[in-house]
Simulated scan of single mutants.
Amino acid sequence: MAAYAVVVRDGQFLLARSPGPGGVPEWVLPGGGMEHGEDPHDTVRREVEEETGYLVEVTGLLGVHSLRRTFPGRLGRGVDHHGLRLVYEGRITGGELRDEIGGTTELAAWQPLDAVPGLVRVPLVDIALRLWRERPADGRVETAGG
């Protein structure tokens, strides 16, 4: 389980950059895994602050994305992984933009919405933007492979 935030302000989209697989940096949504017993609403607020320095108010639940993959495991057996990702909308209420230190991301930045298609990014960025733009009543957008 993980919780992520879509934060858009003045045509800019708040993103974080991760080193990515093989060292190729990729843009990700601020957010991440829930701690045991943590409410996802608290998770997204904590993660956004850790990764960007901003305090956010959660203004709505945009949707849920479910993803199932098989990863290579020990002794040639695949590991069946099911990820459930809650995507919230957030609004900055305080703090200052800064990069995360000692975490999973290396840079936090505002990106123009129209520049996002040209960025190296994880698929969840596009899924979250579709949820934000389309606001489907069922909180779900169809995606390839999940």
Score class of each variant (00 low, 15 high):
Leu84Phe: 03
Leu84Asp: 00
Leu84Thr: 07
Arg85Tyr: 13
Leu86Ser: 03
Leu86Glu: 03
Leu86Ile: 08
Leu86His: 01
Leu86Gln: 04
Val87Met: 03
Tyr88His: 06
Tyr88Val: 03
Glu89Val: 09
Glu89Met: 01
Glu89Ala: 14
Glu89His: 07
Glu89Trp: 01
Glu89Gln: 14
Gly90Ile: 08
Gly90Asn: 10
Gly90Gln: 10
Arg91Trp: 04
Arg91Met: 09
Ile92Met: 12
Ile92Leu: 13
Thr93Pro: 07
Thr93Ala: 12
Thr93Gln: 10
Gly94Pro: 13
Gly94Arg: 09
Gly94Glu: 07
Gly95Cys: 12
Glu96Met: 04
Glu96Phe: 01
Glu96Asp: 12
Glu96Lys: 14
Glu96Asn: 08
Glu96Gly: 10
Leu97Lys: 05
Arg98Asn: 05
Arg98Ala: 04
Asp99Cys: 06
Asp99Thr: 04
Glu100Gln: 14
Glu100Ile: 02
Glu100Met: 09
Glu100Thr: 02
Ile101Thr: 10
Ile101Met: 06
Gly102Tyr: 04
Gly102Glu: 06
Thr104Ile: 12
Thr104Phe: 13
Thr104Asn: 13
Thr105Tyr: 08
Thr105Gln: 06
Thr105Val: 15
Thr105Ala: 11
Leu107Tyr: 14
Leu107Lys: 14
Ala108Trp: 09
Ala108Gln: 11
Ala108Ile: 08
Ala109Pro: 00
Ala109Asp: 15
Ala109Gly: 09
Ala109Gln: 15
Trp110Ser: 07
Trp110Gln: 10
Trp110Pro: 14
Trp110Tyr: 06
Trp110Arg: 06
Gln111Glu: 13
Gln111His: 14
Pro112Asp: 13
Pro112Thr: 04
Pro112His: 11
Pro112Glu: 13
Pro112Phe: 14
Leu113Thr: 06
Leu113His: 10
Leu113Met: 11
Asp114Arg: 12
Asp114Leu: 04
Asp114Phe: 06
Asp114Val: 07
Ala115Val: 07
Ala115Asn: 02
Val116His: 08
Val116Trp: 13
Val116Gln: 09
Pro117Leu: 04
Pro117Ile: 00
Gly118Pro: 00
Gly118Ala: 08
Leu119His: 02
Leu119Phe: 03
Val120Met: 03
Val120Asn: 13
Val120Cys: 06
Arg121Cys: 03
Arg121Ile: 00
Arg121Ser: 15
Arg121His: 14
Arg121Pro: 00
Val122Pro: 00
Val122Ser: 15
Val122His: 08
Val122Lys: 15
Pro123Lys: 11
Pro123Asn: 02
Pro123Met: 02
Leu124Gly: 11
Leu124Thr: 11
Leu124Glu: 01
Val125Thr: 00
Val125Ala: 05
Val125Lys: 02
Val125Leu: 06
Asp126Val: 02
Asp126Leu: 13
Asp126Ala: 15
